[in-house]
Design a protein around this nucleic acid. Structure first.
Lengths: 260, 260
DNA sequence: TAGTGGTCTAGACCACAGC
DNA sequence: CTGTGGTCTAGACCACTAC
């Protein structure tokens, strides 16, 4: 089994093995409910050690693709449509991964001093200089989400210099060396205010799905704090978790009406 | 460093090391933003191999407690209040972990045949026998959530035999050998129907936070499909994810009003 | 009892961060 | 350059499942 290039030429072996197994599952070589070959056999087949195979299977386990239980072969749970961290973090990349055309329009920018909540989440002293950006996000032209992001000075200065109609903010930030490594998300419901209603084309008081997001760099320094408000029926948040590990994704809301 | 018993006498060493480090972080020995000792030093300190230390650190990484980056020491992100899979899966255990008194009252039970959506999610043939349970869940007496769960015959028969006022359904199920191993969650917004309004004490048409949940056993067989509708302001769903891994929790909605 | 995944060890080399 | 985490190997033993 030639595993080179399955996930880019320079990725570690376990990533390439994981990608090869993922493709095999998506292709139907291992149907939903089927049992995977034993770890020892996979190790021999790929010409790697069992440890490396276990690393690869750990990736698939975290994505909710396969189970694991001592004493029995691993079982395929089925194809999973979980997005990677990058797709989850960036509206632009998420839209592209769905084949939709992402759009963004900056509505308002403020250079202000951090209030209590902002100071807390960005771990800044109260009154520190921050940038607030209000932005409408669209999918193939349809208004979908209103994004209110607060950036610390260093990051906000880069964002403020971008053109108002820039589709992606995250990509230029990465090019300027801002590294996104960890994010905490909170999901709840909120009612639309005047800004939301005007931008999304709904009524004031209509319910919106809200995601709070605080992102940090590898050193643990917060780089953005955002509150995104989605029109109902446009997105839902999906999560996979298990006794071993957990994973999160975000998907278009296309599920059927229930009957329960 | 004696690590025995830090996470139960019979847990593997890496779990006990992880628990010890977690406590050290919670205790403030390693403050938020501080750097952890190197893996080699931890290995020597705990008297284990570096591989075991890395397994322990992987647990903390998945929980969003520490970062990791090649070339530099790990950084403490801060105490995290992520719930375990068990707390996330069971309303009863979640409530207890918060110090709230969980309650449940069965409103309606049906022995029916699976419709298309149910058959799909429970991976049954359409028309297979299923049990539907409508239940009101309370926290310390307050109505919080309406739960509509569909069980396959084998599991539903156990649930149907429970007393109407049983606080927990998941615990008796586990005692009967039903093992919960993996869950897929989807979170969106829905408006209250007549049942919701009557049970939760809100108006028909009010927005509710909805969680769909499909849980499977270690063999990949679905054991429940549920649709839970929460009163806004009672809960929010929280997720931690990173370039390496992800994790999910659920928490009471006590966040401050925003200023963004 | 045989097969399997879970845990653990002791080493090795590499890529990257920071001096 | 040194220190660090990331990757990988080749073994070992154990706990559990299924026959």
């Amino acid at each position: 089994m030639d595993v080179a290039g399955a996930a880019g030429g320079r990725s570690p072996i376990y990533r390439r093995v994981a990608e090869d197994l993922r493709q095999a599952i998506l292709r139907g070589d291992y149907a939903s409910g089927a049992r995977l070959p034993a770890e020892d056999e996979l190790a021999e087949r790929y010409g790697v050690s069992r440890g490396t195979v276990r690393q690869a299977l750990g990736v698939l386990r975290a994505d909710g693709l396969v189970t694991s239980r001592r004493g029995t072969r691993r079982v395929v749970l089925g194809p999973s449509r979980l997005q990677s961290f990058e797709e989850l973090r960036s509206f632009t990349r998420w839209a592209r991964s769905l084949g939709e055309e992402p759009g963004g329009r900056v509505v308002r920018v403020e250079h202000a001093t951090a209030d209590e909540a902002e100071a807390h989440h960005l771990r800044l002293p109260e009154g520190a200089s921050v940038h607030r950006v209000l932005r409408l996000r669209t999918l193939s032209g349809r208004p979908v989400m209103v994004e209110r992001t607060t950036y610390p000075e260093r990051v906000g200065a880069i964002v403020a210099a971008l053109p108002k109609g820039a589709v992606s903010h995250s990509e230029p930030l990465e090019e300027h060396g801002v590294i996104f490594a960890d994010a905490d998300h909170t999901i709840d419901v909120v009612v639309a205010d005047a800004d939301d209603a005007k931008l999304l084309g709904c009524a004031v008081g209509d319910p919106l799905l809200r995601e709070w997001r605080c992102t940090t760099d590898p050193g643990g320094t917060p780089v953005e704090w955002s509150q995104d408000r989605y029109l109902p029926g446009t997105v839902a948040f999906t999560v996979h978790n298990s006794t071993a590990t957990t994973a999160l994704g975000r998907q278009l809301d296309r599920r059927p009406r229930t009957a329960g």
